[in-house]
Amino acid sequence: METGTEVNAAERFGLGLVVGKFLPPHRGHRFLIETALSRCERVVVIICGKPVDPIPPELRAGWLRELVPQAEVMLIDDRYDENDSRVWAENTMGWLGRAPDAVFTSEDYGERYAGLMGARHVMVDRARLVVPCSGTAVRQDPFAMWDFIDPPLREWFAKRIVIVGAESTGTTTLAMDLAAALDTEWVAEYGREYSMLKQGSCDANWRSEEFMDIVREQARREDAAARRANRILVCDTNSFATVQWHRRYMGTRFAELEAFAAACRADVYFLTGDEIPFEQDGLRDGEHLRHDMHRWFEEALTAQPKPWFLLRGSRETRLSHALEILDELRLEWRR
């Protein structure tokens, strides 16, 4: 596994160093860092980040701190010539306050870089045989590399399909059917759960702040489910839809809620049609507004930038149409 400077596989070091862009950090990187951790008393991971990176450096640093908490993660502003090993060596010793005892890399530059600091170089899986993955491959097609990325990255890369619609238009049924067809996770509507608790407490008065509580919890559950998702996450409503429910119950706009909704994650919206009969389930109270709300959703979806599609017809027809649309969009679904 190791080349260059001869390093005994049993030899241990004091301070070990791993450096890279980690754009993004994948399981090959984790294998590299865990190898260093197994051989060193202390390991520092230096992330080289630029503001123009397609994935924010701070986010990558947070992911690594979560994935390898035993390592110390340091984020630096990458403004140096990546081919000038001497400059990197000098700066590295300044960042660390000393020279590392060993440098762990999977790259050919590691031997010279480590040598300039008087450190040992440990080459780890140069041929990518243990973990056949690269940051470039993940960025180009995260779905193909899904098995080589960990839950925090899955949360980032998972595509989010959001199903919205007025009361009793089949949003939950479609969410369940679509998730089953895609063999993935779906997120239920937290607002309904909240409404049931509110009804049980005999509280009929709504406050705008309650809608903020709803969207924050909905977003938290979405992010948690995205970590478990199989490439695509199906959401039964999101904060964009909650803006329409605030309009329904409060009759006014709410700037804080709209700002939160504008930043919500969504890749495509499906709007369920209002042509099916209304079914009372003991909680619904808006049959008289259902068609108006459907128009509100159409207007709001048209005004936002994400693609959206209206689904009508039977349960089977809606599912079939949704799957056809997703198949057509597939080539555009690469971050």
Rank of each mutant, 00 (worst) to 15 (best):
W156K: 11
Q199Y: 14
C202S: 12
P152S: 04
E209D: 15
P151F: 07
C133G: 05
A225Y: 02
L197P: 04
P132W: 06
A225V: 05
G191V: 07
N230L: 03
M176Y: 13
W146A: 04
A179M: 04
D183P: 08
L129H: 08
G170K: 03
G165W: 01
D213A: 13
A144M: 07
A181H: 03
S208D: 14
T169I: 06
L174E: 04
E209V: 15
D147H: 05
A158V: 07
L174Y: 06
W156M: 09
S201T: 11
A158F: 06
K159I: 09
D203T: 01
A144L: 10
A137C: 00
N238D: 15
A179V: 06
W186M: 13
R160Y: 02
W206Q: 00
R207G: 10
N205Y: 10
G200H: 09
F211H: 13
E209S: 15
E155P: 08
A144F: 06
A137W: 09
D223A: 14
Y190E: 02
I232W: 12
M196D: 09
L129S: 09
D150T: 13
T171D: 03
R139A: 05
V243N: 08
C202Y: 12
V162S: 11
A241Y: 05
D147R: 04
M212R: 13
V162L: 11
C202M: 13
G191K: 12
Y249F: 15
R120W: 12
R128N: 08
A181Q: 02
G165D: 08
I163F: 06
R228Y: 11
A180F: 01
W156E: 09
V187I: 05
H121R: 07
R126W: 07
S239D: 00
T237H: 06
F143R: 10
D223E: 12
G170H: 04
C133V: 15
R154K: 15
S134N: 00
D177H: 00
M176S: 13
L129W: 05
R220C: 04
T173G: 10
T172P: 05
R221L: 01
V130D: 09
T173M: 11
T172K: 02
N238R: 05
L182Y: 07
V138R: 02
R248K: 15
V131M: 14
W156R: 14
R220D: 12
E167F: 03
P152E: 01
T237M: 06
M145K: 01
V215W: 06
L178A: 14
T184R: 02
Q244I: 12
N230T: 09
M176G: 11
M145G: 00
V234Y: 04
N230S: 13
V215L: 07
M196K: 14
T173Q: 05
I214W: 14
M212D: 11
L197Y: 15
S168G: 08
D236H: 05
A127P: 10
C235W: 00
R220P: 00
F148V: 02
T171R: 07
N238K: 03
C235G: 08
Q199L: 12
Q199S: 11
V130Q: 13
P142R: 02
A175W: 00
